[in-house]
Simulated assay, not measured.
Amino acid sequence: MKLSLRGVSKTYSGRRGETDALAPLDMAVREGEFISLVGPSGCGKSTLLHIAAGLEPATSGAVELDGERVLGPGAEIGLMFQQQTLFPWLSVRENVRFPLTLAHHRGRAAGGAPGRGAARVESLLRLVGLWDFRDSYPAELSGGMQQRAALARALVGKPEVLLMDEPFGALDAQTREQMQELVLHLIQHHRITTLFVTHDVDEALLLSDRVAVFSERPGRVLATLDVTFARAARSSALKLDEAFLHQKREILALLRGRDRFETQRDRLLFGLTNTQSNSGEGGP
């Protein structure tokens, strides 16, 4: 097992007393697997990701990577957040290379020899379509281009696990779809072990091997669903497929706290046609 969370919980203490953010939960991510976490705002999804990254401690339980306990952030885990965290005073190429530079100064040869590190930076910038903008600065890039640079930076140290916290949430619909296609390409060719937080059920189904559905706070896993679509068949067009819509209805029903869609308003709200709602899959 690549990444294992055992009995992980989180309670915050404040002036108004204690707040349980996460109920004790177990989760295991297999090597090369992509798991999305979906659930209501404030249910602890991002908190779980931060604990998995070693950015904050759990109140109880343990996180293990390949059997070794995660006690803090390290090069083995790559991170990508909703708001890009590029350094405005560095060029795109320098931003992507920064983790290798940091590792070198700390005495770790994560990027190998300088020439090999430069080659990897170039390879990733070409992969995400930013090689022609390698000497530009973040302020000169669109939001989508900034997130492409952030993704390249998260991957440059060849992390064993990639943790992504709503990385496309601030993008417009067209740019978000482009980023999803890019991630699909990365998954297809590199099979990076990934834990991905999103509010977008379509996005979760398109990208994932499994989707974990969270309850309201304190967050717990209501269900984990296997995504049944072949990797080779995945593209934005899949979102219109009836099997895709069926799995979407399952997840939305869980999020709304019931097993079935109950009203015509539900069917309209979630984009179901009369034909789909009468198919016997999730209809009243």
Rank of each mutant, 00 (worst) to 15 (best):
E18T: 13
H246C: 07
L206W: 00
G144A: 09
D132T: 12
I251A: 01
T11Y: 07
R220I: 03
V96Y: 00
G283T: 09
L205D: 02
L3I: 09
A243G: 11
D241Q: 10
L79P: 00
L22W: 07
A75W: 12
W89R: 01
G129Y: 03
A103V: 06
L254S: 01
E216W: 07
A204I: 15
D241A: 13
R191E: 12
T224C: 15
F34I: 05
P114S: 11
T228C: 12
V128F: 08
V227I: 12
S123R: 10
N278A: 15
G72E: 12
T11E: 10
G257Q: 07
A119W: 07
R6N: 14
D259S: 14
L25A: 11
D135P: 04
E242T: 15
L55N: 03
A109E: 11
S277G: 05
A204F: 09
G39E: 04
R256L: 14
V38S: 05
V38A: 08
F87I: 13
P167I: 15
Q82R: 09
S4H: 15
F270T: 02
S123M: 14
E160Q: 12
T224Y: 06
D200E: 11
G117P: 02
L5T: 07
T198A: 08
L254I: 05
R30H: 14
L48C: 13
M27Y: 07
L151M: 11
G7I: 09
G111F: 05
D226H: 14
G219P: 03
H104E: 15
A230R: 15
F133T: 03
E64A: 13
S46Y: 07
E250Y: 01
I251N: 00
P99E: 08
A62M: 12
G283H: 13
L155W: 06
G129T: 06
E181I: 10
S277L: 10
P284G: 14
A62P: 01
M164T: 02
L245D: 00
E216G: 13
K248T: 01
R234H: 06
N274Q: 12
D66T: 04
T85E: 10
L182H: 11
S46P: 03
Q84P: 01
S13D: 15
V96R: 00
P24F: 08
L71N: 10
G115V: 09
D202Y: 03
L254W: 02
I35K: 00
A233P: 01
H104F: 10
Q276L: 10
P73D: 14
N95L: 04
L184S: 06
